[in-house]
Structure formats: C-alpha cells, structure tokens
C-alpha cells in the first residue's frame, strides 16, 4: 500500500566565511590582442557556473557581448586569491570583485577616451566595445584601439579590484557579533512523498522550492543548483550513509553507498524570489549550499504526514520505516 504525505521546511544560511575570518576575492581585467577582454580569476568553477557569472557581470558593466570575454582561470602564478568555491560565496565575492574591476576599467576607459576625444566624461558613452561621443555616435574608438594608444603612452589600460567586506568575530562566550555573516539566503521547500508500506521504500514525488536569492544572475544556473542540491538532500534523507564500523568503512563503493539515480528524481517546481541584497552584485546572494539544506527535513516531515511516525535519525531507510510501522501496529493492538 502507498501512503501519501507532504512536509515543509524553511531554512536560512549565512554565507561567506563570516565570523570575522578574512574573506575576499581579487579579480583583474585587461585587453588581449585578439579583440578579447581577459578576466583573471582564481575562482574555481566546480560546475556551479561561477565563470559564467563572471562573464555575465563583466559583459554587463562593460556593455560588451559575453563572447568577447575570455577567462584566465585558476593558476597560482597567473591569478590572485579569489578565496574558495565554498561557503556559497563566489557569486557574491568574486561577482563583486569582477564588478568592481569592470567598473574601474570602465572609469579608465572614460578617462583615457576623454583625453582622446578632448571631451568630458559626461559627453561619452560605451557600447559593443566602442567608446564614442554621445552627440557624434560615429566618432568612436574601440576599446582595443584605445588600449593600444594608452600603451603607446607607456601606460596600461587594465584594472584590478577586490571585494573585502567586514564581518565580526563572534564573542566566544555568547556567539554575539554585529555582523557575523555578510548576508543570508532563505529557502522553503515542500516535499510530497509516497511511502510504500509493503517495502518501506519512499518515493519523493515532488519538490517545490521557493528561494530568496537576492537576484539571479543566471536563473537557469540557479535552478540547476537548487535541483542538484535537492537531489543530494533526497540522498541524505533516504539512502546515503557511509557506514563505519570500528573505524572501517563497510561500503566504500557505489554499489552500497547509494546516491539517487534519475529513477529517483521527483518533479521539481521552483520559484525564485529576488529580494535584492544591498551588498550583493546586482543584488545577488548565494545559492550553492542552501539548495540542499531544506530537502531532508521537508522529506522527514512528509513521511510523518504520510504514516504518522517521526524519525530522529537520517537516513530514513526502508528498514527503519518497516520496523516503526510494525511497532505502530503492535501498539495499536
């Protein structure tokens, strides 16, 4: 027999290292000879898409097509510290560093162009890799020509910037601190499940997610983080457990350490709420970790709704469910 249930969980996540730990990212932007713009960042793209975020932000500020932008990725001898791709921090930290660098570069473009055009900043504009006079749009110079002219003067048209917000070290006795984390992401998930009372297996049917992420730089990628995170949450709730007996792992393989397959996938419905954060790049907050946090408790609550049994330890395996169902039945008798 199958029993249906649904449960809700709401979570918060203070992102960045916070707690007064120095947390910053450095990025730089320069012009390459092949009419490309080079962004240097050590931010590790582990699949989440930070380098795409970097391209989008640089393109946005510099008003160029994203195809023009090329990235020099992580190399300790070619890029500066961007901090880790963890703590849900890269969109916020490296996003801001790149935004700051792009803005600094843009300022310099205006500065040098105003010399070229013998004009004032206010009379200039940029678009598609050109800087031009607003009143004479045909009177334009490309960024790369401008960079060449700057080079001829013995200077370099490039910019480096960082983002280094302050947080406070919490009081060791009380945890109190004025700003312990730079900002918080909030997520609510509702899980719908079906519990098979013959086998104790749980099928997650649907996951609804509403996430306050400030601003989605790339909505598709934000959804990807949420769906992937939720799937890991399903694993945590129902099947994943590294079994250690006297310090020895009994399931160090993918045969007995189970992660969800496509067959375990529920339907996903996701809604992004954009309550822009005053410090985030274009208002963005992070979503890397928060996507996974609410799922396991939402499922546990849904299982309670389905069979009236609450589980206090994860994962909630078929063994535990059948045992509890049997005890429930024995109690009623």
């Amino acid at each position: 027999m199958k029993r249906f249930g649904r449960g809700i969980a709401t979570i918060m996540f203070g992102f960045g290292y916070g707690e007064g730990f120095p947390d910053y990212s450095v990025a730089s932007i320069e012009f390459a000879e092949d009419n490309k713009i080079l962004v240097r960042t050590a931010a590790a793209d582990v699949g989440q898409g930070v380098l795409t975020v970097v391209v989008q932000i640089a393109a946005e500020v510099l008003k160029v097509s994203p195809e023009v932008i090329r990235i020099i990725p992580g190399d300790t001898h070619l890029t500066k510290n961007a901090g880790s791709s963890s703590a849900t921090r890269q969109t916020f930290f490296t996003g801001n560093a790149v935004k700051n660098a792009a803005q600094a570069l843009l300022s310099n473009i205006y500065h040098y162009a105003s010399i070229e055009f013998r004009s004032n900043y206010a009379e200039l504009s940029v678009k598609g890799g050109y800087v031009f006079r607003v009143d004479q749009p045909n009177n334009k110079i490309s960024f790369w020509e401008l960079a060449q002219k700057v080079k001829e003067k013995g200077e370099i048209l490039r910019a480096e910037a960082s983002f280094f917000p302050r947080t406070n070290k919490p009081n060791p006795e009380t945890g109190r601190g004025e700003k312990v984390y730079v900002a918080y992401t909030f997520v609510t998930q509702i899980a719908e499940v079906e519990v098979d009372t013959i086998t104790g297996n749980v099928q997650v049917l649907k996951i609804y997610t509403a996430a306050d992420i400030g601003k989605a730089i790339n909505p598709q990628n934000v959804e990807g983080q949420i769906e992937g995170g939720a799937m890991q949450g399903i694993g945590m709730a129902l099947m994943e457990e590294q079994v250690l007996k006297d310090g020895v792992t009994l399931n160090a393989n993918l045969t007995d350490y189970l992660i969800p397959t496509a067959m375990d996938m529920p339907q996903f419905e996701t809604c992004l709420i954009e309550k822009e954060d005053s410090d985030g790049p274009f208002g963005a907050k992070g979503i890397g970790e928060p996507g996974t946090i609410a799922t396991a408790p939402a499922i546990a609550n849904a299982i309670f709704d389905a069979i009236g049994i609450r589980f206090y330890d994860l994962p909630i395996t078929p063994d535990k469910i059948l045992k509890a169902l049997k005890e429930q039945k024995d109690k009623k008798l």
């Binding site: 013959i198 104790g200 399931n251 007995d256 078929p318 059948l322």
Partner: peptide
Amino acid sequence: DIRGTKEYRKEVARRI
C-alpha cells in the same frame, strides 16, 4: 548486512 537487517528481511518477506 549492509543492505538490510534480519528483522527487515523477515518482515518484508511476509509483506511481499
């Protein structure tokens, strides 16, 4: 074993 307890297997055998 790692895939299920004795109790589980007995209980589920009856149910299936």
